[in-house]
Simulated scan of single mutants.
Amino acid sequence: MAEHRIYGMSFASIYPLYVQKAERKEHTKDEVDQVITWLTGYDDAGLREAIADEVDMRTFFAQAPGMNPNASLITGVICGIRVEEIDDPLMQKIRYMDKLVDEVARGKRMTSILRSA
């Protein structure tokens, strides 16, 4: 079976779409950055470097400093699929990120998005 095309897409091409989605709903780039850094362990400089280097999604997650241990608490449906039921680990990470950005755009409280007390 052929690899999903999103794996080869650059994070730099997807990131602005995340920001636009949040901004359309009157949320900020900083909120998008906060959820992405929470999920992946990148700091702001690392995130900017991944964008500047135009790394693909596979590399973006492979080089992530560390996935948040609470990422497994992310549940729900994105693109018609329950994120907790996705078998492919890379696709699940991508969909986790999609879900977090979705929650920012919907105006969910940040403590809830980041699965904090």
Score class of each variant (00 low, 15 high):
65 P>K: 05
102 D>M: 01
36 I>A: 03
20 Q>N: 12
15 Y>N: 02
54 E>C: 06
89 P>S: 10
24 R>D: 07
4 H>W: 07
54 E>W: 09
103 E>W: 03
72 S>N: 07
76 G>S: 08
36 I>G: 00
25 K>A: 07
37 T>E: 10
113 I>N: 15
7 Y>Q: 02
59 T>G: 03
51 I>P: 00
59 T>L: 09
41 G>V: 07
10 S>E: 14
86 I>P: 02
6 I>T: 04
77 V>G: 03
24 R>I: 13
35 V>D: 10
106 R>L: 06
29 K>G: 00
54 E>G: 02
73 L>T: 09
46 G>M: 05
68 N>L: 13
102 D>W: 03
59 T>V: 10
65 P>D: 13
49 E>H: 03
100 L>Y: 11
34 Q>K: 07
49 E>F: 10
82 R>V: 15
87 D>P: 01
74 I>W: 04
68 N>Q: 15
25 K>C: 12
59 T>I: 13
41 G>H: 04
55 V>K: 03
71 A>T: 09
65 P>M: 02
53 D>M: 04
88 D>Y: 02
57 M>E: 02
95 R>A: 12
72 S>T: 09
81 I>T: 11
44 D>W: 11
72 S>G: 08
57 M>D: 06
70 N>D: 15
82 R>Q: 13
1 M>Y: 10
58 R>H: 07
35 V>N: 09
98 D>P: 10
100 L>H: 12
90 L>D: 11
77 V>R: 01
103 E>G: 01
5 R>F: 11
80 G>T: 09
91 M>H: 04
14 I>R: 14
70 N>V: 12
104 V>I: 13
107 G>D: 01
60 F>S: 03
80 G>E: 03
71 A>W: 12
42 Y>P: 05
46 G>K: 07
15 Y>L: 06
32 V>G: 03
103 E>A: 11
17 L>F: 06
